[in-house]
Amino acid sequence: MQISDLPKYPLSQDEITVINEVIKKYRDKKGALIPVLQEIQKNIGFLPVEVQKKIAAELNIAEKEVYGVATFYSFFSMIPRGKNDIRVCLGTACFVKGGKKIADKIQKELGIKPGQTTLDRKYSLQVNRCVGACGLAPIIIINDKIYQKVKTEEVMDIIYSYNK
């Protein structure tokens, strides 16, 4: 995907204030790029290019370096996460217990691929490497809540229960 293909999501004044505060907090700290990106990702849900440029300028780092780091780690996203963030675990234990089928089902029903967000921004989907809850496999996580031993035929009921 080209950067120019990314849809634009305008930032609110509150979000801009948060970004400024995070940058201020870490400005003089060495090796602070990842914590800065982590806090902004957590608070506003994504890392748009304009924000990356701002971070580069304020922390005195090359823009390409910020972009390089932001696209290297899977926890950073340039597309806003949905109101409900769905993560399907595809660790080995979940995989051998049918995790892939669950991921396929969600993709088909919501019409999005891993890394994408529905147009109404209600749901986003990610596939996760192992979260280490292998005893409960297969699992999905919605907004930090773990659902265990999920069945393919039940997964959409779980997801749509968030649509209230």
């Binding site: 595809l90 660790g91 234990a93 995989f95 490497r129 192992c130 280490g132 809850a133």
Partner: peptide, 12 residues
């Protein structure tokens, strides 16, 4: 950074 899928000793 316990990254191997199927490993959760360190988390525990």
């Amino acid at each position: 950074d316990e990254g191997d899928p199927g490993a959760f000793m360190d988390r525990n």
